[in-house]
Every structure is written in structure tokens, then in C-alpha cells.
Simulated assay, not measured.
Amino acid sequence: MAGMAAGWRTGTTTATVREWRDDEGWGVLDSADTPGGCWAHFSSIDMPGYRVLERGGTVRLTWESPGQDGYEYRAVRVETGAA
């Protein structure tokens, strides 16, 4: 992957929504591939209309590292109903 910083990684996995802040449009997703949690913004959710996730829900997560806002991982794409 030309142009990517050393240590930059990506992957796809199944994750659980740990928390979601509707008012701020972001949350944290947990998976074995993203220890410590993966930061997710509403813009990364692949669904029509108002994009929000439910705590405890299962999603398909495409992530990248380095992350954002204190999390090592950041969501690139989140697919709901993909358990």
C-alpha cells in the first residue's frame, strides 16, 4: 500500500457496539481484532437515512489503524444487519 505510514493496518471483522452517542454521532465498537475498542463516526455507517447504532448490536466492521481520539482503531465502514 504505497503512501501509507509504517504500521498502518486494516481489516474486516464482526464487532459489538459498546456505546453510541446519538447526540455527538460517534461510538465505540468491540472485536477481537480491535482490542481496546474501535472509534466509529456516523458517517462510516452504511445505511440510508439517520445513521445510528444500538448498544449491544452486532455489525460488520472494516477498520484501520492508527485510530482516532484515543483509540488505536478507527472505523472505515460499518454495516448493520451483517451478523
Results as ranks from 00 to 15, higher is better:
G3A: 15
M4W: 14
P35Y: 09
P48T: 07
F42A: 05
W8P: 05
G11I: 09
T16C: 11
T34L: 05
D23P: 05
R55C: 04
S44E: 02
S31V: 06
V52F: 09
R9P: 05
A2W: 12
T16Q: 13
V28E: 04
P66S: 07
T34N: 01
W63A: 03
V59M: 04
Y71K: 00
G49Y: 10
G57N: 06
M47R: 12
P35A: 07
L29A: 08
E54Q: 12
T13N: 06
T10L: 15
A15G: 14
R55V: 13
D46N: 08
V17E: 02
R9A: 12
C38A: 08
Y73E: 10
Y71S: 00
H41W: 05
W26Q: 09
L61Q: 09
T58I: 13
T10R: 10
G36Y: 04
E54K: 12
T14A: 05
A2R: 07
V78Y: 01
G36H: 03
A5F: 11
R18T: 13
G70H: 03
T16P: 10
A32C: 05
P48N: 10
R21E: 13
Q68Y: 03
T34Y: 04
P35I: 05
L61I: 11
R74S: 08
S65K: 12
A2I: 04
A32Q: 11
R55T: 13
R60W: 01
H41A: 03
T62N: 04
G27C: 15
V59H: 03
V52P: 06
R9W: 07
T58R: 15
V78L: 02
G56L: 10
S44D: 08
G3L: 15
S65C: 14
E19N: 02
R77K: 15
V52M: 12
S31Q: 05
S31C: 08
D46A: 11
R51Y: 00
G67M: 13
T62Q: 04
P35R: 06
